[in-house]
Design a protein around this nucleic acid. Structure first.
Lengths: 328, 328
DNA sequence: CTGTTAGCGCTTTCAT
DNA sequence: ATGAAAGCGCTAACAG
């Protein structure tokens, strides 16, 4: 069933059918009704592919993320999908697993399918910038990086001020009287670098030694537990632990509990992301809200203006906010 | 830059370029090399839309889910995406929010774009079955419902035996000596109905009164907290609480903690889904693993055979498994 | 207001 | 082994 069949059945030309389909004004009311009747009778849906062939757009954007099972990414992906859906676009989801090759392959495929735009979610995608294939693939496709940066012609960013986020946490602890503040570095992305820089800068500003208070560990519950064990073994004096991710912070909570150390009375803990985990754990976590939904919304706004080729694009920076729970 | 430009540049016809592009055998080695050089030189990527126009497929499937921010759905969506990606398909993600109209609209759009198949994730989609528009939209598109059922020609299911899942939890508690076992019904989907049925059936089988031990509450942390308050207010004797969702169970944990009741010494609690939340809360939750990843994988297998129009389709049922934590 | 026609960029016969 | 030409289903001039 195509537009020719409908035209024949309605006794008109395909142009008229097309006009009715696209709700153009210049169609006689009677003709319109007749065509609409046939359309309904056959439950006709025009071919999006054929339309795409003409308009050179499938009204689709691609969202690349490391892993949509990570709540942080799920929130951004969700918002992006909803916002684009309102605007008449579909969203292709791609889980790259943080692998460069995988990301390049996805970009190859989706640009081949002529997506109207691409959103890269996470600073890990900063790494694909230097790859020459990426530049060539993205030459004709607008890109927005959520919480990252790519130095390419059509690429703009919605950044989160992660440095400020950690600053807020450290200052909060300082005001509460904490001085032996440790930082757990649990990731190795650019975003994690900015967090660490925030820790160092703030400690310095407060007249404390930051460098000696940084510990590296794996991401996640296990990483947090292990970090606590090592910290306690080292006999260091600890009054607060700032973590780069909520999940790590919760591992810390569990490690402290095992060691019989009370939170927040003896040691305070803060996380990052304002994930639902922060509400689920005991005690509820003080965490940094890095505004995933806002980042998603802004990314969509930005990408849409890019797709429409309107003027005046500008990357933007979002300010995080400290959410004080019961762990500090 | 299209296939004509490449052909001209290479001094051959578009057929030859097409053959090279599609790695057909019958091309002279010299010609092939010449064409490939031009292809590389221009970083040429053939139009997926034009190809789709011919093949009537964009190698794309749509995944409809209530909300990908719900970990349970994120896990299924993730697995489906990864599996389809391996098979050369892209995945369109649609968050319907559990709204019938929204779901119909998404189906309208994605079938218009001629997706090769649709996966509906969640028993909530059982509700769209009766809508006549759905039947007509899905007439030519194969559909798999993950954890649900749709009585339509091209629809097959991958079901989870939720009833068995609750059974496992109740039996486990019974063996531990619990008799005053309550069930919290926290959702209103078909899946939730099956869980409740599992509770009633098992209690009966164990010679206990199930009906009097069911309480309804809202989904989520708040729902769990409130349910505990009401249960304690009612002065009912409670020795264990079985929940339909992990998050509700965690609300229960929090409610019990506030009331100064120890878990599992005084009251045992079980959840459902084996979400990461179950690892994050204190104490770690006994929960039912409903095999999200497996369901995702099986859904993809099934949908792929449907797309290839191979013979022998069959809906399948997945068995859940009880994961004993520290809350029981 | 309506119809005819030329593409859109490919794949695929069918010739040669 | 290669090329010419038809056709996928639609939109958008252009005519009338």
């Amino acid at each position: 069933m195509n537009i020719y069949d409908i035209a024949k059945e309605a006794g008109v030309s395909i142009s008229t059918v097309s006009r009715v389909l696209n709700k153009k004004e210049n169609v006689n009311e009677e003709t319109r009704l007749k065509v609409e009747e046939v359309l309904k009778r056959y439950d006709y849906v025009p071919s999006g592919i054929a339309r795409g062939m003409v308009s050179k757009s499938m009204k689709t954007v691609a969202v690349l993320t490391v892993d949509v099972r990570v709540p942080q990414y799920a929130r951004i992906a969700y918002t992006i999908e909803r916002e684009f859906s309102k605007r008449g676009y579909n969203v292709q989801l791609c889980n790259t697993g943080g692998d460069l090759e995988e990301a390049v392959q996805y970009l190859d495929i989706v640009t081949g399918k002529q997506v109207d735009g691409v959103v890269l979610v996470g600073s890990i995608f900063n790494r694909i910038g230097p790859d020459e294939r990426v530049a060539s693939l993205l030459k004709h496709t607008p890109v927005v990086v959520a919480n990252g940066q790519l130095d390419l012609p059509n690429c703009y960013s919605v950044l989160v001020d992660d440095q400020l986020g950690i600053s807020l946490a450290v200052e909060h602890l300082y005001k509460k009287g904490h001085r032996e503040i440790f930082y757990l570095k649990d990731m190795d992305t650019d975003s994690a670098q900015r967090k660490q820089a925030g820790f160092l800068e703030t400690m310095k500003r407060l007249g404390l030694d930051g460098k000696a208070h940084i510990r590296e560990t794996m991401f996640g519950l296990q990483g947090g537990v292990q970090a606590v064990e090592q910290l306690l073994d080292s006999k260091a004096k600890v009054s607060a632990i700032v973590c780069g991710e909520d999940l790590t912070a919760i591992g810390v909570l569990k490690g402290l509990k095992r060691a019989g150390i009370r939170v927040p009375e003896e040691v305070a803990v803060t996380g990052f992301n304002r994930s639902e985990y922060a509400q689920v754990c005991e005690p509820e976590l003080t965490t940094v809200d890095n505004k995933a939904e806002l980042v998603g919304r802004l990314s969509v706004q930005l990408l849409e203006t890019l797709i429409q080729k309107e003027e005046h694009y500008a990357s933007m920076v979002v300010q995080p906010e400290l959410i004080v729970g019961k762990s500090s």
